[in-house]
């Protein structure tokens, strides 16, 4: 969400501190996903305070069979930065979708999106990421037989 481990840790500690306080007062929210919800808004707040990603029209490419190999060449940090540069709610949708922790219904609840909106966010992001991949780590040409 933030593309910055230090900031993410600050947010995490703030959430834990808040959770400890609430638990001590017996006021933990009924929403079972409240921690993720809280993290989302805190991350958005923090990212708004820092440098903003420039809004640019992203190129979109069809998903390629070579994508897994291209992705495997990336550093995790590069992906984190790419996701943190996405506008919200696409950023939240991507971060939560790829965490592989939530069902579709939970994703809708956390992102406050409807299925068509979530589908658009994720579908567009795939194609934009594919375009970025093609530019950053171009697919390797298959070796020609002599």
């Amino acid at each position: 969400m933030l593309g910055d481990a230090a900031k993410a840790q600050e947010v995490f500690e703030a959430i834990m501190h808040d959770a400890a306080l609430r638990a001590a007062q017996g006021e933990l929210p009924k929403d079972r996903l409240w921690m993720f919800n809280d993290a989302r808004w805190r991350c958005l707040e923090v990212s708004e305070a820092g440098l903003q990603a420039e809004e640019v029209e992203m190129e979109e490419h069809e998903l390629a069979a070579t994508a897994p190999a291209q992705i495997a060449q990336l550093e995790p940090q590069q992906l984190a930065v790419w996701i943190s540069g996405a506008p919200d709610p696409q950023r939240t949708a991507l971060a939560l979708f790829y965490l592989d922790e939530f069902s579709h219904e939970e994703l809708l609840m956390l992102t406050e999106l409807k299925t068509p909106e979530l589908a658009k966010c994720i579908g567009n992001a795939r194609q934009e990421f594919q375009a970025w991949l093609n530019a950053t780590v171009p697919p390797q040409e298959p070796a020609e037989y002599q």
């Binding site: 994508a67 897994p68 995790p76 992906l79 984190a80 790829y98 592989d100 990421f129």
Partner: peptide
């Protein structure tokens, strides 16, 4: 594609 991205996320 998704699985590859998820693997990378797990590697963060």
């Amino acid at each position: 594609f998704d699985q590859a991205v998820a693997n990378l996320v797990q590697a963060i």
